[in-house]
Design a protein around this nucleic acid. Structure first.
Lengths: 350, 350
DNA sequence: TTGAAAGCGCTACCAT
DNA sequence: ATGGTAGCGCTTTCAA
């Protein structure tokens, strides 16, 4: 930078001012400085800039290190967050730590490399969040805790209520009135797993509001879990559903498998709708599944922007709730007409 | 750090020495310094340390920003690299740039935040690699180019030859002699796509060495592409294969779908083996697919270690080739006995 | 509008 | 083995 200053015939501080806009610089000097810069191929040093300004322009993303790796939606989130950070002139660093490894997160956070931290898969009473806040590290949350969102923390999450409402509306529009919901494992409820909790509540509320029976089963996160869940639905005492909504990606494959094994035609005999999922995943089954696409990318964007807003203004931006978007891959169709007695015309199966 | 020095009654430089081990420190003082440190809850500042030492302890990972996001294997790689970097006391930053955006990569690289760069999905004549090398930035490659690997660059990649050999050996052991390979799209060959090229060569060599016909088809990366490829195999002039090896994850779903549509039993009538894939993905089909699991995690580890070796010693470590590992999910079985005339006993289908 | 100088929090090298 | 000190490459006062 000294070189640039010399070449442009100005003081070091003027070059800095040209770069940061911290103070007015006449057009004439600015031009000369910029010319010198690209003649020299100058790039400011991120470390020095960060040290002097106390802003590294680095954001951190911490996520639980799982045996099973990241879900497709989480991966979309990470990639999107990195891309948006980039657009905003920031860089994103990855901090893999267990959800309960508050010490680990705190330790690296206090090294001061990152200006703020995005915390994924937040759970109720999250130790990482508490530790970071205690240390005065700016934080934004991805996925709210089961509790009401803390008003002092920026939060972005899937809008489960809207998603469930959209799913039900989509199926109701097709004439379905016997719907069933395949949720995550029941154990998740006790763990305070936000999606399980909020989707369950939204499902019940939405169905009751429509005067329908809010049938819901919990499924282990596995193919076997999905098969079992569907079997319970079809073999249970209640009348079998004409449409199934799944929010458990692993189990969804089991649902499809069980349907195939029983020879149940989709969507002719039964409609299947995968919510908070990814078409890239749900499109891999046979038949491909109509999906309410989890807004991983939008949340990545919103999360970064929320954190940057906090960093910039010092005020907590309002929570962001992103709905899923319908991607119709053909696994939902009109409710089957039981004995040709339906009032609706149209065959519905090509 | 000044505070720590005061509290321990030593000079600033001694605290630094205690931290870095750059010079001998007596046990007595070291103890006092460390006591002072955790009484004060002191953590060294990463930015200052990096600026002064010219080593940021930050590694960068650049990958192409695709419309379709990262594959499962790539995601495993990223997660693994982040974890290993962490273990080694480094942090990993994400640099999403198109494969041809050498300027973008170079620009951020020259900001000096990262000590070195891991480049994913390297292709022949990669502009990013050339730019980084030109700027003197340490680089490690994930996936070799179609050309011979540059001896001046650390490289880690899937061992396609070993993987193909393992796949063929596995099927041969089951008695199969009519094998077919579903590769990526033919267009990839012209693009210098390493996996397509090397797997193709390995397939041909391996089959010929066994005196078998190296049947190979190229498939578009889609379900439709996979269906078409399998149809070509089954309806073609040549005798139908008894086992299919797929190395195209998207197309693999199509292969399975086509098989299901035709009522071909797997593995009773046809064995399917997904190579360089992920059990997390291949396990989602019905039936689940036996997989040669792409070593994403091992490559992440190896890639980080290769880059750190280069950084540490200044010498280029030897290329690392990681084989895939067999995960038997049941989609491969003994070759079917055409007319009950086979010499082999055993039914093979439970 | 610009220049000069004082740090940011460390490491590295000089002494001692 | 330890203390002092000069930077690392910037941003930020404060003067001019």
């Amino acid at each position: 930078m000294q070189d640039v200053a010399r070449r442009a015939g100005v003081a070091l501080s003027t070059v800095s001012a040209t770069l940061t806009g911290a103070r007015p610089v006449s057009v004439a000097t600015r031009t000369r400085v910029e010319a010198a810069m690209d003649q020299l191929g100058y790039r400011p040093n991120a470390l020095a800039r960060g040290l002097a300004s106390r802003r590294s322009r680095v954001l951190a993303l911490t996520y639980p290190v799982g045996d099973s790796g990241l879900s497709r939606t989480s991966a979309e989130f990470v990639i999107s967050a990195a891309a948006v950070a980039q657009e905003r002139g920031y860089q994103l660093v990855l901090w893999p730590f267990g959800v309960d490894d508050a010490d680990g997160v705190l330790d690296v956070a206090r090294q001061g490399l990152a200006d703020g931290v995005l915390v994924m898969e937040v759970h109720a009473g999250d130790a990482r969040v508490a530790a970071l806040r205690g240390a005065g590290v700016p934080v934004a949350l991805i996925g709210r805790t089961a509790d009401e969102a803390d008003p002092d923390l920026p939060t972005v999450d899937v809008d489960f209520a809207a998603t469930v409402a959209d799913a039900v509306a989509h199926l109701a529009r097709l004439g379905h009135r016997r719907l069933a919901f395949v949720n995550h494992a029941e154990r998740r409820l006790a763990e305070g797993h936000g999606p399980t909790l909020r989707a369950s509540a939204a499902w019940t509320a939405e169905l009751l509001a429509r005067g329908l029976d809010p049938v819901q089963v919990y499924a282990e996160e596995s193919v076997a879990g999905g098969r079992a869940a569907l079997a319970a639905l079809l073999d249970g005492p209640d009348p079998a559903p004409t449409a199934v909504v799944t929010m458990n990606e692993e189990a969804t494959f089991g649902v499809v498998a069980e349907l195939a094994a029983r020879g149940v035609a989709v969507p002719a005999a039964l409609s299947v709708l995968a919510v908070v999922s990814s078409p890239a995943v749900a499109g891999q089954t046979v038949p491909p599944l109509t999906t309410l696409h989890a807004p991983g990318a939008q949340l990545g964007r919103a999360g970064v922007d929320a954190l940057l807003a906090l960093l910039g203004t010092g005020t907590v931006p309002a929570p962001v709730l992103e709905p899923c978007r319908l991607v119709d891959l053909g696994s939902t169709g009109p409710v089957p007409t039981p004995a040709g007695a339906g009032a609706l015309a149209g065959s519905g199966t090509p």
